[in-house]
């Protein structure tokens, strides 16, 4: 087991180290202009320095608050609505055109509107995150309910389960893997939108900190902050995956013991 893990990880670590070494050498030898591309070792040093100071964590907290509130809002609206649309053919047909029209609107195009309505603070960020996250969660919820196995439905019905029990015991668990995927995809989207709101509009958070570093000429710190956003995204995805794996261990994509 441990040996297997090591075998998995060795090539990955080698790949990462190789890239880091090449970047370091390119910067030190001047192949890449040093003022725009500081050596990686300095970037990591700067990041480590930031990690022990409260400033970075405050910014992370601001970004994550927009991420969390927006994602939660989107989920609270999109899951029930999606399940309703998935369950009722008529409701699905009625709302289809509206959805097809609204969905392709890129969230960033709504920034001016959001600023107009919500100002440049947290509310604007939450709105953008929620709008962007709403769609993947909505669609996954619709598909999840539409994909409930008819035999499972019939089984529940033949055993006389009332509608509410059929929802709780058959439809919700069937749709859960779809909804979980929707949430995981949306978590990445939420981070992008939160950072965009901070970068473009200047709402407080990691995104604005990156812009401030760039303007003030602390290029190394700018890279360190960009690196921090990447790590944050990776961490969130990992957390979502592991929660999914735990809660949905019965699902074919997470089964450990298969026959």
């Amino acid at each position: 087991m441990l040996g297997g893990r090591l075998r998995d990880w060795a090539p990955r670590l080698m790949g990462i180290s190789a890239i880091l070494v090449v970047l370091e050498v390119c910067s030190r030898t001047g192949v890449l202009p040093r003022e725009s591309f500081p050596p990686v070792s300095e970037i990591y040093g700067s990041l480590l320095g930031l990690l022990v100071e409260p400033g970075l964590w405050i910014e992370v907290g601001r970004t994550m608050r927009g991420w969390a509130v927006g994602l939660l809002l989107a989920a609270l609206l999109a899951v029930p609505l999606g399940m309703l649309l998935g369950a009722s053919k008529r409701a699905f047909q009625m709302s289809r055109l509206v959805i097809e029209f609204l969905r392709p609107v890129p969230s960033v195009a709504l920034i001016p509107l959001a600023v107009l309505v919500f100002g440049v603070g947290q509310d604007m960020k939450v709105f953008l995150v929620a709008f962007a996250c709403f769609w993947p969660i909505l669609f996954q919820s619709i598909y999840g309910v539409q994909d409930v196995d008819p035999v499972a439905r019939d089984t529940a019905r033949s055993y006389g389960l009332p509608p509410l029990a059929r929802f709780a015991r058959i439809i919700l668990p069937s749709a859960a893997p779809y909804i979980a995927t929707g949430l995981r995809i949306s978590s990445a989207i939420a981070l992008i939108l939160a950072l965009t709101a901070e970068l473009v509009v200047g709402a407080p958070g990691l995104g604005r900190a990156i812009v401030v570093s760039q303007i003030s000429g602390s290029i190394t710190q700018m890279y360190a902050l960009i690196l921090a956003t990447g790590l944050l995204g990776w961490l969130l995805n990992t957390v979502f995956l592991s929660v999914e794996r735990r809660l949905l261990r019965w699902h074919p994509s997470h089964r450990e013991v298969a026959l």
Binding site: D149, V151, D154, T155, Y159, G160, L161, R169, H251
Partner: peptide, 25 residues
Amino acid sequence: FQDYSRSLLPWMTVERNVSFPLRYK
């Protein structure tokens, strides 16, 4: 049902699969 693999619910253990309809009876 003929299709047992679809009639049994994969998120329930064997025991739960057998017992879940009983409460509603």
